[in-house]
């Protein structure tokens, strides 16, 4: 078997194991999908009437941003899961088996697609309740969800690396909060902009903005906000795909290396 095929088939075995765990301990899934739902409700009802967005209700505008924030927060699930695995005896079992070295990571990031799909579904339902609608068509809508999932997948590899690096669930959760909050707030995720001074430049090139913009365009939630002129937001899908490529190219090898190193302790 080629090494890629081996990584995929062994990864599938590990993914199955992770899914069984979600099934046996559903509380974890339930509580972590609760927080994005809470975000939708808070933003929609607390800020909803105070942030004007031309041509569209704030609640509809908001959803694209919350989707991105959710999948980014969702990736901490990957980091925490791996950090937890590394402290368990099962990792010694895995490392003594003739399985692909990357399988634990491939399996973990793959099973987290299920997790992200679940939270996106729950969020969409919450969105529908507060008045969000997909105003384009089926194809565009599906495209928007796929892009979100793809970005989520790439971002899980970032958090996989963090999880292996720190090897403690608490640290993963706290550390990721520290960089996820600024990353999602200095963007167009929650406000149409412009942000003050240099923050605006950061926001324009922040991939979070591009994903949010792409999702809004796919779902038809942009209203009459003037078309952005900066390239990254004018071509949000292309810019997002570039970021996905960069993240995967950097963090897959980095995480696999860190896995081998961390497990050797």
């Amino acid at each position: 078997m080629s090494s890629v095929a081996l990584a995929l088939s062994d990864g599938a075995v590990v993914a199955k194991r992770n899914l069984i765990k979600i099934k046996r301990v559903p509380e974890v899934l339930i509580w972590t999908t609760m927080s994005p739902i809470m975000f939708v409700l808070l933003f929609a009802y607390v800020f909803g009437s105070n942030i004007p967005v031309p041509g569209v209700s704030y609640r509809e505008f908001l959803m694209g941003g919350i989707f991105v924030q959710t999948v980014i927060f969702g990736s901490t699930f990957t980091g925490a899961g791996l950090a937890e695995d590394m402290t368990k005896g099962i990792i010694d079992r895995f490392r003594s088996l003739p399985m692909a070295r990357s399988a634990v990571l491939v399996g973990r990031t793959a099973s987290d697609i299920f997790y992200n799909a679940t939270s996106i579904t729950l969020m969409s339902l919450t969105g529908l309740v507060v008045g969000w609608r997909i105003r384009t068509g089926l194809i565009e809508g599906i495209g928007g969800f796929l892009l979100l999932l793809l970005f989520a997948y790439a971002f899980s590899w970032v958090m996989a690396y963090v999880g292996l690096k720190v090897s403690s669930v608490e640290v993963v959760n706290n550390a990721s909060f520290m960089f996820i909050m600024p990353l999602t707030f200095i963007s167009n995720a929650f406000v149409p902009g412009p942000l003050p001074g240099p923050l605006q430049t950061f926001a324009e090139w922040n991939p979070v903005s591009a994903v949010a913009q792409a999702a809004r365009e796919a779902f038809g939630n942009t209203g009459t906000v003037p078309e952005p002129t900066v390239w990254s937001l004018d071509n949000p899908v292309a810019y997002t795909l570039i970021w996905i490529g960069i993240i995967l190219a950097i963090f897959i090898p980095l995480s696999v290396r860190q896995y081998n190193k961390a497990a050797n302790r």
Binding site: R17, K21, R24, K88, G89, D92
Partner: peptide
């Protein structure tokens, strides 16, 4: 130390 997955 036993290397088994307790959730399985």
């Amino acid at each position: 130390t036993a290397a088994v997955d307790e959730h399985l």
